[in-house]
Design a protein around this nucleic acid. Structure first.
Length: 571
DNA sequence: ATAGTATGAATCC
DNA sequence: TGGATTCCCTACTA
């Protein structure tokens, strides 16, 4: 035991308030001689960087632990510890500024690159691409070069896109129905191909939900389909009531929607769990009806083909992305069945000729700066490509027959990667004949009348214009999963464990899509249940019944057409 | 009210 | 190439 001075068992703690002065020099003097240079420096550095606020704060996390060790050391009877109550940034631990929510507005740490566009030198508040003030389009250089796709496919495939945008895209008022039956976060959504009121949802637990949103009280959840994440679902083009699902359990299932009985088409883990290095998970999936194929891809970069008639795997797996990397998306061209689009964690989206599927033989590789969450051909002509990447950018290639070396546009949009959220994917509006409208949830929150909300953005991908943002003051969670109805004016959203159906109110007027952003608010405004602030009060405890309110929402943004009405149904 | 936790890409060496 | 560490505007439960 080291000799002790006669003191109380704990060192004296001096709490220093809002002062910029360094720890007292007497303290350092006392330490000298007993501790070697390195230790002292370490402690000093700690003090400098960890001038946490209250003691309890200082005692949490790793820094806190080290602090506690420091306390122990000091028990040997040395100088008082100086804690500062000086406010410190919780992101970079430096003094002089603070990051975090101020009311419903998040203040970035200025030491970090902009949270929105990821460029240094400014914060989200002053970002030139900030969605709240401007549309963040980065035009890419255009060249008139031609690419290999042209020679192969262009003669067969004439792009047939209406140049004129429809005038009736965005309703001015919406209702939102809510259902909650998933016990884990929603990972994918799919509308029924013929029944207009059926929405399918998959979750992280492996369950599949069927929601007839016209019959609001009926719910169906099939719990024994998969044992973990349902990553993608597609309806069987030849049989309306059956759905293919690809899961991280390594199987493709074909689920009968009426009974919930599922058939396993393929199992990549027949020997069960042999450790993470061998466990195969299925992510990307699509169905090619012309060829009668289900296409799936795994977390090691491989593509598998399954014949839909025999339910047998065809051929050997093909390496289509970097070996060992996850292939998160597959999309068959809606017009040309020989064209396939894939994307994954190797930062590429790749275009393939199905007639020549072999490792390294993609027709084109579209480079991204980060993981590509999704890549889709445009839904009607199949001649455009829209990708969502974890670098907070949407990328658009206006023609697969044009210059594919760089995207036609990059649109800065906040859809940050967060391990606790389902990855964001920008989805085309399948009804838009001009193929220029996409929907995607927003990560970053905006202060809407004192509530921090995460809207769902409608973006004109030909201009980068934010056309509309949809939100409900009652919905404070982030909505990464969105899908637009193939025929009706319906938006389906998966947000955490809940599902939403947004529809125009009956008296709603269709509104011309023009160069002005519309804020579409659903629900009550005054009773904001924002993050942690704002007055909290009566809940809509009227589960299973409609409540309709018409309180006025005052926006902090002028001249917005705001409406409110909450048709809320919970289960 | 708050602490714990699930859990994945990037980065570093 | 691989293991440890960091990131730090999540959502929920105990």
């Amino acid at each position: 035991m080291a000799p002790q001075t006669r003191r109380t068992s704990f060192p004296k703690v001096v709490i220093e308030r809002d002062s910029d002065s360094e720890p007292s020099s007497s303290e350092e003097e006392e330490e000298e001689g007993e501790e070697d240079e390195d230790n002292r420096e370490e402690e000093e550095a700690e003090r400098g960087e960890n001038e946490e606020g209250e003691e309890e704060e200082a005692l949490e996390n790793k820094n806190g632990e080290r602090k506690a060790e420091g306390l122990d050391a000091k028990k040997k009877g040395k100088a008082p510890i100086t804690l500062s109550l000086k406010k410190v940034c919780k992101v970079c631990k430096k003094a002089g500024h603070e990051a975090g929510f101020k009311g419903a507005t998040y203040i970035d740490c200025p030491m970090k690159p902009c949270f929105l566009c990821k460029m240094p030198g400014h914060t989200t508040m002053t970002c030139p691409h900030r969605v709240a003030t401007e549309h963040g389009v980065i035009p890419a250089p255009r060249r008139s070069t031609r690419n290999p796709l042209e020679y192969v496919f262009e003669r067969q495939l004439r792009p047939d896109i209406l140049p004129i945008k429809p005038t009736f895209v965005i309703p001015d008022q919406v209702n939102c129905a809510v259902i909650r039956y998933h016990s884990r976060r929603v990972t994918c959504l799919e509308f029924h191909p013929t029944n207009n009121n059926i929405l399918l949802s998959g979750d992280k637990k492996g369950q599949v939900g069927v929601w007839d949103f016209a019959k609001v009280h009926e719910k169906m959840v099939y719990g024994n389909v998969h044992s973990c994440i349902v990553n993608n679902m597609r309806f069987n083009p030849t049989k309306d009531d059956s759905v293919y699902a690809a899961s991280s359990d390594g199987t493709i299932s074909c689920i009968d929607m009426e009974t919930g009985i599922s058939l396993s088409l393929m199992n990549l883990n027949p020997d069960g769990w042999q450790g993470p290095s061998s466990w195969r998970m299925l992510y990307g999936m699509d169905v090619n009806s012309e060829k009668g194929l289900v296409l799936v891809a795994d977390n090691f970069g491989f593509l598998y083909l399954v014949d839909t008639r025999s339910n047998n795997k065809i051929g050997e797996a093909v390496l289509i992305h970097k070996k060992g990397s996850k292939v998160v998306g597959l999309h068959c061209n809606p017009v040309q069945p020989d064209l396939l689009l894939s994307c994954g964690n190797d930062h590429f989206a790749r275009i393939w000729d199905m007639r020549r599927m072999e490792a390294g033989s993609s027709l084109y590789a579209l480079a991204h700066k980060r993981v590509v969450n999704s890549a889709y051909f445009s839904p009607l002509s199949g001649s455009k490509i829209l990708t969502t990447s974890q670098d907070n950018r949407l990328r658009i290639w206006d023609s697969i027959f044009g210059d594919l070396d760089s995207p036609s546009r990059e649109i800065v949009h906040s859809h940050d990667f967060n391990r606790h959220l389902t990855p964001f994917r920008a989805e085309w509006d399948p009804k838009d004949p001009s193929e220029s409208l996409a929907v995607i949830g927003r990560y970053i929150s905006e202060n809407y009348n004192g509530a921090a909300l995460h809207p769902i953005d409608f973006i004109d991908i030909s201009t980068g214009q934010l056309v509309a943002e949809v939100m409900d003051p009652n919905i404070t969670t982030i909505s990464p999963v969105n899908k637009l109805h193939p025929r009706d004016d319906v938006l389906a959203t998966g947000s955490s464990r809940s599902l939403f159906i947004w529809r125009p109110k009956e008296k709603s007027e269709p509104v011309e899509r023009k160069d002005e952003r519309r804020i579409i608010v659903c629900g009550r405004a005054e009773k904001k249940r924002s993050r942690k602030f704002g007055d909290e009060s009566d809940d809509d405890s009227g589960d299973d019944k409609f409540t309709s309110q018409s309180t006025k929402l005052k926006s902090n943004k002028p001249e917005r057409n705001l409406t409110r009405c909450s048709n809320k149904v919970k289960r």
